[in-house]
């Protein structure tokens, strides 16, 4: 199925993917229903995975799909269900100063876009058109990038333990805590 995408003209696919990503991102942040938000987020992640595939980074695309869509999205949905029961927010779903926030974001967008358009890097042509094999990546991971890999493993372990400890049901709910 993805091979079909790759066969299409490059620019068109890029524009479609970019539009999909941006629209789903905006939707995932704009909707009131949290579950819908999470689902649109997963669509956005899938679009990103497609983008990576299109850029010959197959391994990255697969990682993106697996980790973000499979893992992060699912725990997001679980977290939503565990907190507010999955319903829509009561009252305003926007913060008190949301206009300021969006204004700042737009300002930053213009600033960065200006920076990007002025950057000399953007004229460089693509070089890595060959996609690296998984074997190559594995070898690199086990040799040159062994220390970062192990550090990341440690970090993930700590995060997993930390998450379990934090979310663990306490034996006695504190009554003196003000809700």
């Amino acid at each position: 199925m993805e091979g079909g995408f790759i066969a299409m003209p490059t620019d068109v696919i890029l524009w479609i993917l970019g539009g999909l990503i941006l629209i789903s991102a905006v939707m995932s942040l704009a909707l009131r229903n949290l579950i819908h938000c999470a689902l649109f987020l997963m669509v956005c992640f899938l679009g990103l995975a497609g983008l990576y595939l299109h850029l010959n980074a197959v391994f990255s695309g697969l990682v993106q799909a697996l980790v973000y869509v499979g893992a992060v999205g699912i725990i997001l949905i679980f977290a939503i269900l565990l907190t507010e029961g999955g319903g829509t927010e009561t009252g305003s779903h926007l913060g008190s100063q949301w206009r300021t926030g969006i204004g700042l974001a737009v300002l930053l967008a213009f600033a960065l876009l200006g920076a990007v358009s002025n950057s000399p890097q953007t004229t460089q042509a693509a070089r890595h058109t060959e996609e690296p094999t998984v074997r190559e990546i594995g070898l690199k991971l086990m040799t040159d990038y062994l220390l970062p890999l192990q550090t990341i493993g440690l970090l993930l372990t700590a995060a997993a333990i930390g998450a379990v400890v934090l979310a663990m049901q306490e034996p006695k709910p504190r009554k003196d805590e003000t809700p």
């Binding site: 991102a25 995932s28 305003s92 779903h93 949301w98 974001a105 737009v106 930053l108 990007v116 950057s119």
Partner: peptide
């Protein structure tokens, strides 16, 4: 290249706007 960077900037700012505007922690 400019396309990717612009896409990245826009996605980043959309995320930032969500973080700044929404009240819900999960949305952040």
């Amino acid at each position: 290249m400019t396309f990717y960077l612009a896409l990245s900037v826009l996605l980043f700012c959309v995320g930032l706007a969500g973080v700044l505007a929404r009240r819900h922690a999960i949305m952040a």
